[in-house]
Design a protein around this nucleic acid. Structure first.
Lengths: 232, 232
DNA sequence: TTTGTCTTACATCTTTAGATTGATAAAATA
DNA sequence: TATTTTATCAATCTAAAGATGTAAGACAAA
């Protein structure tokens, strides 16, 4: 958590000029933040971010021209410790999820009380991530749901359960891209034995070749599952 | 959001008998919930859940005997609309993340004020998901970090960018488990042409065979990315 | 003890996969 | 226009993968 020795600097990006003015006034009059720049264009906003290096950006994510989410992503890629708070007119779970996924430090509805916006900025300036309670609940419903669907498909009937311990070892090595010789070497068994195991695996998983076996394994919760991959 | 026409029923599971008594007293005296049963064993707790069908379970997740998280998972699998709130002594980001992932409707620290526990129960009883603000912030740091690491690896240098449009088509079919003949049929080109493309793909991705190519593709953000896969 | 499963192993055979070289026409780019 | 890239196809060859049948020792369960 860093301390701001100076007044924190804020950049406002909102294609609605009226709302932009309103927020600027609010911040100027009722907070201890400095608005260093404002713009109604996401593209210009990204350039302003590079130029002014603000501490916080308030980014409208419901803009027609350029997607606000995409703009957030580009700003995050700059890796300049600029903290973006998403401003949106919608408490849509998918929107909230995507915004938080790509690195937004907060998500505030435009309809919320101005005090809440200031509070969010305070929290974010202090290094925290802020989501209003109601939106947090929405987020988690969406979040948990994405895992529930997964369980269903894998619960139907997971052919992986029919594999023996040794077959699982072999499959694990298959999912790492090993060929017969390599697997034989790592398990200290002969290549023909590996072939036997692999053939048994094919039978049990009802596939025709190793690529299909690997795909089946990865899509049905077999070990080596990597983190995430939740499409934006 | 459902309404409770009767007083909501609560099951308490906590291996610490003292804490168990304390929470029971708190709920009995200072809330409008009925404690239908208590136990210090996760396994017994699961059976009690089936028997009493409580509306809410307060589950200690720091138990030695059986992992509380595992117990939550088993209860969720029952699919009986029993809402579990995780009780923990630690505000560990990983613990919070895992609890919420498997379906906990709330996560409350044992050190928190008793009013906060009652509030969490009220929210959860009302169909919402509740996480204290401080823990929400922790959760999101962890959540966003899991995506950041991903970007790094894929940002280093993604060999997939060197593929031509046609090669991407071929790779896409490879990641679906097709062999040469099948790909040739689907793209209306000869099998030898497919071989040429596949060989070029191997060169560009610096791999030796199709399985490795498929693994590279899946691990580096190539289309077909499925939802989730965040290991518990 | 018998039965069954698991792990190991080999032989044989067929089918894919993969490497290499070469070639042509279209399309994009310099 | 000249050059490079891309997409297409072929022939050839080697290596790897996959199918099938058989079998022995270990071990656990009936």
């Amino acid at each position: 958590m860093r301390e701001f020795k100076r007044r924190a600097r804020v950049l406002l990006i909102d294609d609605n000029a009226d709302h932009l003015r309103g927020v600027k006034e609010l911040i100027t009059l009722e907070s201890s933040y400095d608005v260093v720049a404002t713009t109604t264009s996401a593209n210009i906003g990204i350039n302003l971010a590079k130029k002014y290096r603000p501490d916080i950006i308030l980014m409208d994510i419901n803009m027609p021209e350029k997607d606000g989410l995409q703009a957030i992503q580009e700003i995050e890629k700059l890796d300049m410790d600029i903290r973006v708070i998403a401003l949106s007119g919608y408490d849509d779970a998918d929107l909230i999820f995507r915004a938080m996924k790509i690195g937004a430090k907060g998500y505030v509805l435009k309809t919320m009380a101005s005090a809440q916006l200031i509070y969010a900025m305070d929290e974010v300036a202090a290094g925290k991530i802020y989501l209003p309670t109601a939106l947090t609940s929405r987020f988690f419903e969406y979040f948990q749901n994405s895992f529930k669907e997964e369980e269903k498909t894998s619960a139907e009937e997971n052919l992986l359960t029919y594999l023996t311990a040794r077959e699982e070892e072999v499959l694990d090595l298959l999912t790492q891209g090993n060929n017969y010789k390599s697997i034989a070497g790592k398990l200290f068994i002969s290549e023909t034995t590996v072939k036997t195991h692999v053939n048994n695996i094919f039978q049990k998983l009802q596939v025709n070749d190793r690529t299909q076996a690997v795909l089946y394994a990865l899509n049905n919760g077999f070990a080596n599952r990597r983190l995430s991959k939740i499409a934006v």
